[in-house]
Nucleic acid binder design. Structure first.
Lengths: 329, 329
DNA sequence: ACCAATCGGACAAACGTTTGCTTAAATTCA
DNA sequence: TGAATTTAAGCAAACGTTTGTCCGATTGGT
């Protein structure tokens, strides 16, 4: 039903080839008179290019696919903005598909929808692929890069913060304020990210001469409820005066749970959050955080895809921004 | 470079047609022996189907495109989840593209990337199209539906809440609690949505025998800063005892600004928010809200696309959920 | 006025699939 | 045993583009 290049050709009285060229602005191939005729015909027919067909023959696409692990993660918006901006600057279009965070089958389907289509590259947002799905991704001819997640395997291209530093600096922020008994809440010790944050946390503690206690760390999946559960597990008798939370959401979880326990933040308990999204300034008191450069991560991701020569694993800088949740003792 | 159906055919010693059939599971067209050979060859070659090519010939696609106005809107995640779930149930794949909220050119580009591709339908999330872009959309052969936004023009398919009711019930919630002087903050009076919420607000007031004052309404674009600005404009001397905010974010803005002004919520000021996202339960005190059914909106949207016979403009129910920000006088 | 160069445009192949039609072989039935 | 039916697989066209090659006509130079 939709008008094709041939319809235009017929209407304008020229060949499809010529139509293609004037529509692609390949001046040097046609005269002004024909150009006009073609434009008019195209307009009249309401022509819309069939990109799929074009990509089929040119064997190259200008769409960049982003696979996101879940709808919930609130920092993703910053990364996506970074991707979007730099992609646009390079004339690329961005499409996003959501993969389930848990279900490997949903993950696989999401992966397939981007792989089976001509995309010029794939960005994976804090996505933990199963081995099979990773293989699937690598089997495709498409360049890819993981974002906001790092791997033990050094061969996987990725851009993320230095998680050890994240853990270290978060903890150090509390140590500098005079805290000694410091918890680590809602980091996932099964992930590379979580293990390194934990290691950084422990190193900071030891460097300050305090020996980590097992019950100071309450693992969890970085979520709001994980934060609440961690704080609930601490209870009021833990003796902790500060806790670093695995994410902003988690921090809000411990904040709210602390309040429910009758604790005042930061008077009774100090909190430093990890991520530094706008959430930090929305809650009361505003969360002190070690902030990641999500926007830059996104931007670096598309550059990585564009210039294959880059180093595989890149690190974006972090900074601690002091707000209202750490009390100096 | 990538393996094609012909490569498989050559390797398996059959025709491309047969390969296509076994890969598509068109039993009845091939014997078990050939099937095996083909499967093996496909596996060996790491074959990935070229969906673009397939869609070109079948003239039909199973991807559903969602165009989102901005990364910021936090309720979009619920709608998208609704879309995602029902789409998956119908065997559809979902891709998302972001259009700038302001820039008509970015909007146009986003629209083009979905229109110029074989998609089976387009869902537009609270997107206000320029007339040219609307025309562009309508010119495409693709079915579409607006979500979480309504229009004066009754011909545009859309699914949204009844905005008049939203405004009415939000206001009524405060009236029932004994409030008389009630503000309306951060609704955009340029939009259909905003105008109807305003009308509902005024009707509720009048039905309760209180006549609306011009300085009670402080328009804005539903954002956090719009909320803050509205509250700042009210100041401490307004005499308002309650305000309904245009969105959860806006409500948080008035909440925080009220606090900065030395006001305690809900003791000095009651707030009812519009939207009812999880944000409401994250802040302290938790926001009383008139909640929209975003998930259902998304679900209804994909059904609308699937069954063209449906009525054009649908309304999803709302409910007020009482939390902690309205004080009964 | 003749040859070369340039210009404008057409022809046709190719991209990777799907699918209607055809054909050859194998099976069934009387 | 012969005809009819079923089964298995191949041929080739088609989808809507892009682009290398080719051709005729106009132009310019001498």
């Amino acid at each position: 039903m939709a008008a094709t290049i041939k319809d235009i050709a017929r209407l304008a009285g020229v060949s499809p080839a010529t139509v293609s060229r004037v529509l692609a602005n390949k001046t040097a191939f046609y005269g002004p008179a024909t150009a006009e005729k073609v434009q008019a015909a195209a307009l009249k027919l309401g022509y819309r290019k069939n990109t799929a067909a074009a990509e089929l023959v040119t064997q190259h696409s200008n769409v960049l696919a982003v696979v996101v692990n879940s709808v919930k993660t609130n920092f993703s918006s910053q990364i996506i903005t970074g991707i979007q901006d730099t992609a646009a600057a390079h004339g690329l279009n961005v499409i996003i598909v959501y993969a389930g965070i848990t279900d490997p089958e949903a993950q696989r389907k999401a992966l397939l929808t981007v792989i089976e289509r001509p995309v010029m590259g794939i960005l994976l947002l804090s996505l933990n692929l199963t081995p099979e799905n990773l293989q699937l991704l690598q089997g495709a001819q498409t360049p890819y890069c993981f974002l906001s997640i790092a791997f033990d395997d050094g061969d996987l291209p990725s851009i993320a913060s230095d998680d050890w530093q994240v853990g270290y600096q978060a903890t150090q922020t509390l140590l500098k304020a005079g805290h000694r008994k410091i918890g680590l809440a809602a980091v996932d010790s099964n992930s590379h990210t979580g293990r390194f944050r934990l290691a950084g946390y422990e190193s900071a503690l030891r460097d300050a001469g305090v020996s980590p206690q097992a019950d100071w760390v309450q693992p969890g999946v970085y979520s709001y409820v994980a934060g609440r559960e961690a704080m609930a597990a601490y209870g009021v008798t833990s003796g902790l005066t500060g806790v670093v939370a695995g994410s902003d959401m988690a921090a809000i979880g411990v904040l709210n749970q602390a309040r429910d326990l009758g604790l005042t933040v930061p008077t009774d308990l100090s909190i430093v959050s990890i991520d530094g999204t706008e959430m930090c300034e929305l809650v009361q008191p505003q969360l002190t955080s070690v902030s990641q450069n999500f926007y830059d991560m996104g931007a670096a991701g598309v550059r990585q895809l564009l210039e294959p020569g880059r180093q595989l694993q890149q690190v974006t800088p972090i900074q601690v921004v002091d707000r209202q949740t750490v009390r100096v003792l």
